[in-house]
């Protein structure tokens, strides 16, 4: 049994969490409640009325082949983007942690991309990857049709994964670096005195001790890839070509905001919410517990 300090009177505790509760209620539970209501009705956009349709909205999306394709694509995107963003960030953080010459400048520079708004980054990447005008145009001159995200769905997917990861490399980098710096120097130095080389020390000392950070970031990266990818997709590909980059979150945006199908979009967002919640619960309950080094 833990002996945690706690307030004797209940009302003081309630009073102290009340402001936060109000915020959560207004900005999370209320909209979620409205979405839940819409998900079981057919809602007229201008508010002319709605009718209860039970699970129809859900059966509609679950029987739609293209919906399942968008789920699969979101998973591919999530895994791809997380692997890329975390992999690059880890390598950079390991290098930075070795305090090679000029590392302080790298450290600052590498944090910057996270401060760039997604649409701005997307415009830049759209240009870089444009098959006829951008950096890749030169490549296409040498090998015609080697790269064309405008017509090739796989290319378009690679493009949004790279554009999205670029920002998250910076985010992951901060955490990895902090994680590495929290490892006692004495451990690494002891390894060095025992004759372990740089790579050996990384593999046997630093990386294992970094696993809590690693799994924390994995959860954040995956969940963010489900909900934060909208800006990149909207600016670069608009879900195309031929739905090849229509992720779950982009489909919700398109059906709801552009198509004014509030009920269909609400049902999809409930599904997305459940998916993200499940993912988070699974990872925190079953994975994170086993990786703490005592």
């Amino acid at each position: 049994m833990e002996n945690r300090p706690h307030f004797k009177t209940l009302w003081l505790g309630v009073l102290l969490v009340l402001p936060q509760l109000l915020l959560v209620l207004t900005f999370f539970y209320w909209p979620t409640g409205a979405a839940l209501f819409w998900a079981f009705t057919l809602e007229q956009p201008w508010g002319g009325g709605s009718q209860f349709v039970g699970l129809d909205n859900f059966s509609n999306i679950f029987t739609d082949r293209f919906y399942w394709e968008s789920v699969l694509r979101s998973l591919v995107f999530g895994v791809g983007a997380s692997a890329l963003a975390m992999g690059i960030a880890l390598v950079l953080a390991l290098f930075c942690d070795r305090q090679l010459r000029g590392y302080a400048y790298y450290r600052t520079a590498l944090v910057w991309p996270f401060a760039v708004a997604a649409p701005a980054a997307a415009v830049a990447f759209r240009y870089i990857f444009a098959p006829e005008a951008g950096v890749f145009a030169a490549l296409n001159q040498l090998y015609p049709n080697l790269w064309n995200p405008a017509t090739n769905g796989d290319h378009a997917m690679i493009m949004i994964i790279i554009a999205y990861s670029w920002k998250y490399v910076a985010y992951n980098f901060i955490f990895f670096l902090a994680g590495l710096q929290a490892i006692p120097r004495s451990l690494v130095e002891a390894g060095a005195m025992d004759g372990a080389g740089v790579l050996r020390r990384m593999r046997d000392i630093q990386l294992p001790l970094l696993t809590p950070t690693f799994f924390f970031l994995l959860v954040i990266n995956l969940t963010d890839s489900f909900v934060d990818s909208f800006g990149i997709v909207d600016i670069t590909t608009e879900g195309g070509p031929s739905k090849a980059t229509t992720l779950m979150v982009y489909k919700i945006y398109f059906d709801g905001f552009k198509g004014l199908d509030y009920s269909g979009a609400a049902a999809q967002s409930i599904v997305l919410m459940v998916l993200v919640m499940t993912l988070t619960v699974v990872q925190f309950r079953y994975i994170e517990r086993r990786i703490h080094y005592k």
């Binding site: 017509t151 195309g240 031929s242």
Partner: peptide, 16 residues
């Protein structure tokens, strides 16, 4: 708007 999108998606698939 959604019908236009479905048509556009189909055209992209046809032309590629």
């Amino acid at each position: 708007i959604q019908i236009r999108k479905e048509t556009r998606d189909a055209l992209q698939a046809i032309f590629s």
